[in-house]
């Protein structure tokens, strides 16, 4: 069986495929939002806009809208209340967009940096200062982005919720129950790993320069 000896495989193929997919989704989404056939991140024909308030509480087990009947003695709780509006104003659309945009922006930025990393490594070689620099950039994007994105999205969700309720709300809760934080935490570790890996590549680049200069 023939082995694929391309050291950039399969990252190269996946990056190109995902980047093309994201570009296609963005183009289709923008077109759909402008023509009103679909909604993208709060704009266009989005139908309703919802935001979750995670305090939750007990639920009446006899509620006919529940999907299952609870057995006797079983208490039912909900983890979040969802506030929705079918007629969002511009401010609500913007806040709603900001509840999703940072993660998408992070994803798109990571893909772009990955694309540059793969293209640079294919052109200059793997063990180069340029590859190490781009790996380090990718690591920092992941670390900073995965910390800032949930903060920005939670802040936007709090502001969106404030437009939907009549009483003042505290700004200290995480509207998604902190799920975004735990979900993105591994990305911080991956980012730290990439920073370390970029140092490996720097050592490799130094060794390669030594080899190039050996007569």
């Amino acid at each position: 069986m023939r082995r694929d000896t391309d050291p950039l495989s399969p990252l190269s193929g996946w990056t190109h495929m995902l980047l093309a997919f994201v570009v296609l989704i963005v183009v289709c989404g923008v077109y759909g939002a402008f023509t009103g056939t679909t909604g993208v991140m709060g704009f266009g024909n989005v139908g309703r806009i919802c935001v979750d308030e995670p305090s939750g509480g007990t639920v009446d087990p006899q509620d006919p809208l529940l999907p299952h009947d609870a057995r006797a003695g079983v208490e039912m709780r909900t983890t979040a209340y969802s506030y929705c509006t079918k007629t969002p104003d511009v401010a609500q659309r913007i806040w709603y967009t900001l509840t999703m945009l940072p993660t998408f922006a992070l994803f798109a930025t990571v893909l772009l940096v990955l694309f540059r990393l793969v293209r640079g490594a294919a052109r200059e070689g793997i063990h180069t200062n340029g590859t190490a620099r781009r790996l380090r950039a990718l690591g920092w994007v992941l670390i900073v982005g995965s910390i800032l994105a949930p903060i920005a999205e939670d802040a936007a969700a709090v502001r969106l919720l404030a437009t939907m309720v009549s009483d003042p709300i505290g700004g200290s809760f995480l509207p998604d129950g902190g799920g975004g934080w735990t979900g993105l935490l591994p990305l911080v570790l991956v980012g730290v790993g990439l920073l370390t890996f970029s140092r490996f590549v720097l050592v490799g680049a130094e060794m390669r320069a030594d080899l190039d200069g050996t007569v």
Partner: peptide, 22 residues
């Protein structure tokens, strides 16, 4: 039996190392 390019690297002081064989 060493290429001119490598000998030029050596002559111009750009070499980082030299093999015992060379």
């Amino acid at each position: 039996g060493v290429t001119q390019a490598n000998l030029s690297i050596l002559k111009n002081g750009h070499a980082r190392a030299i093999r015992f064989a060379t």
